[in-house]
Simulated scan of single mutants.
Amino acid sequence: MAFYPLNARRPGDLIRTNVTLKGLYSKARELERLQALVNVVMEPAAREHCRVASLRDGVLRLIVTDSQWATRMRYQQKRLVRQLQAYTEFRTLTKLHCKVQPPLIQKAGPVRRMKRSKVASESLFETAEQVTDSALKGALERLARHHADD
């Protein structure tokens, strides 16, 4: 038998009844629609770097990932405005404004792997045999076994 608190409601019911959530949801849907239209006229390489922030008073505000894309959007501003004005949502559009905001999660760089060889493994084993310090000898042998695995 499951326990449900008395005030528990389905998410769909909350969106339809709560005025604040209803407004946020409609604004999110509007921004999603504007983003889809901007993606139609934007060059494919720029789509992942530009997000629609708002459309107010004839100014379309875009959030771009870095200054390079902001500059490219400024160079294409006249063309983009002209093409976007063909859509009813953008008929009052007069200007683009770009704000640079780097992504919160940085992409990890490529992992560089060290090439391992039998010769290196054998050389490490031979060096370990010559060493008198037991800690160093153990470390060299572990490293040699690690190289021998490939």
Rank of each mutant, 00 (worst) to 15 (best):
L96K: 09
R112P: 00
D149E: 08
L80T: 08
D150S: 09
A46R: 06
K115Y: 09
Q35Y: 07
K22H: 14
L136W: 11
E126F: 08
N7F: 09
R47I: 03
Y75T: 07
Y25V: 00
A70P: 02
F3C: 02
Q85E: 04
T127G: 01
M1C: 11
M42I: 12
V64A: 04
V59Q: 14
E89D: 14
L96M: 09
L60C: 10
S54A: 11
R82D: 06
R142L: 06
L124K: 03
A144H: 05
R79L: 09
R61Y: 05
A36D: 01
K99I: 14
W69G: 00
R16Q: 10
A46K: 04
E89F: 09
V40I: 12
M114T: 07
V81A: 10
E126W: 07
E89L: 14
W69Q: 00
L55M: 15
Q83H: 05
S121D: 04
T94V: 10
K137G: 00
L62W: 04
V119M: 08
V111E: 13
R145H: 08
F3M: 06
S67W: 06
L124P: 00
R79N: 08
A28N: 12
K137R: 15
V131N: 11
E129R: 15
K107I: 13
K118D: 01
E89Y: 11
L62P: 03
A120G: 05
L21H: 07
T127I: 11
L104D: 10
R29T: 13
L93I: 13
M73P: 03
L84R: 08
K99G: 04
Q101G: 05
T20G: 04
E48D: 12
Q101P: 03
V41W: 03
P103E: 11
Y75K: 06
Y25M: 01
P103S: 06
P44Y: 09
Q85V: 04
R142W: 05
V111H: 11
H49V: 00
E126A: 15
S121G: 10
S121T: 04
K107W: 12
T17Q: 15
V111M: 12
S54I: 06
N7P: 01
C98S: 15
L140H: 09
R10K: 15
V100Q: 06
A139I: 05
V38K: 05
G58W: 14
A135M: 09
R72A: 10
L60T: 09
Q35P: 00
E48S: 11
E30S: 15
P102T: 13
S54N: 14
R10P: 00
Q83S: 07
L84D: 04
S123L: 10
E32V: 02
R47D: 00
M114A: 10
L80Q: 06
A120Q: 08
H146Y: 13
P102A: 14
L140N: 06
A28W: 14
I15V: 15
K137C: 02
L136Y: 10
V52A: 05
R142P: 01
S134A: 13
V41G: 00
R113C: 05
L34Q: 10
